[in-house]
Simulated scan of single mutants.
Amino acid sequence: MTSALLLDSVTKTYGTGENAVTALREVSLGLPRGTFTAVMGPSGSGKSTFLHCAAGLDRPTSGSVRLGDVELSGLKEAALTAVRRERVGFVFQAYNLMSALTVEQNVELVPRLSGRQVDRDWLLDLLGRVGMRDRIDRRPAQLSGGQQQRVAIARALVNRPEVVMADEPTGALDTRTGRQVLELFRRLVAELGQTVLMVTHDPVAASYADSVVFLADGRIAGQLRNPTAAEVSDRMTHLGEV
């Protein structure tokens, strides 16, 4: 199975000399296409840096990141921006919808910013899949938090990205709504073959993934396949123990 995303010996150091802080150390990981991977670790473990390097938002100090057939580390900034816009879908804890735009206009925003023609049939199909087809003309203020996150997920998918990268996507939602969003991710992986990478602190959220990657002190500290919430919680409790 080919990788949608491949990190090879990625190290990221901020600052120089005595002030240098190494956030990631020799991290290597491949995400097979059509899989759902969660990343967990304590505060300061490197989760955010991992996501930023994987998405091309930050450049590794050494090592390489390959998104599909594109090697990110050699790209100039304009080309890197184009790759992020066209080949990565982002879902954040704060939904980041434009308040003045309708549901449809928010989802259309990504291809329009890329100068691409909007595939309306695909857009409507996506809104149907995320359960928002009947709210197409509403604005964010008229939607619940869970509904806004569903719109954000449709927006992340509209360009048919290599990978959807989700940063604490259920962090602002209640338990029931968060579960619905996670079930939606699972369906998108199963039905569309979408690859999803999610950073989370929640063992229950991580249990929806095919595998969980644990980070500690900037290194991969283990991986758990077909996880349960109890297994994830136990692993987090003992993370970093020798």
Rank of each mutant, 00 (worst) to 15 (best):
A4I: 04
L6I: 00
L7A: 10
L7Q: 06
K12R: 14
G15F: 06
A20D: 01
A20L: 01
V27W: 06
L29G: 03
R33I: 03
G34M: 06
F36V: 11
S45M: 01
F50R: 10
L51Y: 08
L51I: 15
A55F: 01
G56F: 08
G56L: 09
L57W: 08
R59M: 15
R59E: 10
P60C: 10
S64C: 03
G68M: 08
V70W: 00
G74V: 05
G74E: 00
K76A: 13
A78C: 01
L80S: 07
L80H: 13
L80P: 10
F90I: 09
T102Q: 11
E104A: 14
N106R: 11
V107I: 07
V110W: 01
R112N: 02
G115E: 09
D119T: 10
L123H: 10
L124D: 13
D125C: 04
L127K: 08
G131N: 14
M132N: 05
D134Y: 00
R138K: 14
R138E: 11
R139C: 07
R139V: 08
Q142S: 13
S144I: 12
G145K: 06
Q149T: 11
V151P: 06
V151E: 01
A152E: 05
I153W: 00
A156E: 13
L157M: 15
N159G: 10
N159E: 07
P161T: 12
V164N: 08
D167E: 11
D167L: 02
E168K: 09
T170V: 04
G178Y: 05
R179G: 15
Q180S: 14
Q180R: 13
E183L: 15
R187E: 14
V189Y: 13
L197Q: 11
M198Q: 11
V199N: 06
V199A: 15
Y208L: 03
A209E: 04
D210E: 13
V212L: 09
A216C: 03
G222L: 07
N226R: 15
P227C: 07
M236C: 09
T237Y: 09
H238A: 14
H238Q: 12
L239K: 06
E241D: 11
